[in-house]
Design a protein around this nucleic acid. Structure first.
Length: 408
DNA sequence: CGACGGGACGC
DNA sequence: CGACGGGACGC
């Protein structure tokens, strides 16, 4: 038996759905394929399957693109085309993952519906408004509790074309956690497919090009840098999970009904000030006007300790690269996350606090190694709110096989 | 002497 | 009908 764990990437396509399966006449060569497919994106590999003995093409080829959206666009554009005089029209499909073992054609049905996490206040209209930039939406549905009608904070969006869904997954704000939806199953009792691999990792691509769902809100209502931090969960889960919001308000009295504006307001109402920071996005960011950001400032957590703490500092952007993590052990029990943020932010560049559920330990993530070290030096062995902490450098997370390193 | 996150549709 | 090669990281 082989050790698949060592090199599983040989059996997967990364990112998922970025490889095409072509059926062509046997006379179609790699060069012809390259010539006709390279305009759709970064072609990383072309492989014409040939007979081992005769070296003759078997009329089957694989074209690997850098991105799923490129592969999907190429499929949509090239399926049914003739690549050379007198040859049959080609067939183009998204290739089955090598690990699947299946040779069934991948249907558009499986490639056009995405599954996203949304704030519970998000309506289907909000969804459409947010995702229509990626293409024509066939429908958008929010998953709701059947009896109460309450949103579960999850939704489906069906596009007309695979390339549109792929673009949405690649480019929408990370906080939506957009992935391709599993096809509806007739039998909802059977839970998980055995091969639950590689679905969700479309991450890691140019954040600068993202269409942030709140980017507009952020810009529109943004000014006065009064960032407000709240640890509250919004209707049961954090949204965006573990991220910071930089929301400010411009009292322009308009557009409160747009999904974006509405959401901004709802978030404010919920004191859910934890927004992704998308970076300077243009002139509107310069806009400043008197606002009323101070009014929704939640009080800071009360912190009692003998440690001489530096002044409170803002958290680093949640998009920051984590350069160092501290592993903290609490005795007898963990401190609340808001208290920990308040304490550990003071050394600078704190990106996130994560408590391991059900355990007396947690991680403090820093964008700057020096700040992590300062925090460790100042806080190791110290008592905060009656809780003694051991603060040490965290071991690196256990490698999740081939997967792209998490953002922590 | 402790250790690593969250997700599903009444057919 | 039409499905999986080749190359080889560097403590």
């Amino acid at each position: 038996m082989e050790d698949y764990n060592n090199r599983p990437s040989s059996y997967l396509d990364d990112p998922p759905n970025s490889r095409l399966f072509l059926v062509t006449s046997k006379s179609i060569t790699e060069d012809i394929i390259r010539e006709r497919f390279s305009s759709f994106g970064e072609v990383q590999d072309i492989w014409v399957v040939k007979d081992k003995q005769t070296k003759e093409s078997k009329g089957v080829s694989f074209v690997k693109f850098a991105k799923s959206s490129q592969a999907c666009t190429a499929m949509e554009e090239m399926h049914g085309k003739c690549l050379a005089e007198g040859t049959k029209p080609i067939k183009v499909f998204i290739a089955q993952s090598r690990s699947s073992g299946s040779h069934r054609d991948v249907e558009d049905e499986e490639l056009t519906r995405i599954f996203v996490m949304i704030p519970k206040t998000f309506t289907e209209e909000d969804l459409k408004e947010t995702f229509k930039v990626y293409g024509d939406i066939e429908y958008a549905v929010v998953i709701k509790n059947k009896s109460t009608g309450e949103s579960k904070g999850l939704a489906y969006v069906r596009f007309h074309k695979p390339s549109q869904a792929a673009r949405a997954i690649e480019n929408c704000d990370k906080t939506f956690r957009a992935i391709l939806a599993e096809p509806r199953t007739k039998n909802p009792s059977v839970d998980n497919d055995y091969f639950n691999n590689q679905r969700s990792d479309h991450s890691g691509s140019d954040p600068g090009l993202n269409a942030y769902p709140f980017g507009q809100a952020m810009v529109r209502y943004s000014n006065l840098g009064s960032a407000v931090y709240a640890k509250e969960k919004l209707n049961g889960f954090e949204f965006p999970p573990g991220n910071r919001l930089c929301v400010t308000f411009i009292d322009d009295g308009e557009d409160r009904t747009s999904p974006i504006g509405k959401m901004a307001m709802q978030l404010v109402a919920a004191q859910m000030m934890s927004m992704v920071w998308s970076g300077p996005t243009g002139a509107q960011l310069m806009k400043t006007s008197a606002g009323y950001a101070a009014q929704s400032m939640p009080q800071k957590p009360r912190v009692q300790t003998d440690v001489a703490l530096p002044a409170h500092k803002k958290l680093a952007s949640s998009e920051s690269v984590v350069k160092e993590r501290l592993f903290v052990i609490f005795n007898p029990s963990p401190l609340p996350v808001d208290v920990l943020e308040d304490v550990f932010c003071r050394f600078g560049s704190l990106v996130e606090v994560y408590l391991v559920p059900g355990r007396n330990v947690g991680y403090m993530k820093y964008a700057d190694r020096k700040h992590a070290n300062d925090a460790m030096a100042a806080l190791h062995g110290k008592v905060v709110n009656g809780v003694k902490m051991k603060v040490m450098l965290a071991d690196p997370p256990k490698e999740e096989s081939h997967k792209r390193q998490r953002t922590y």
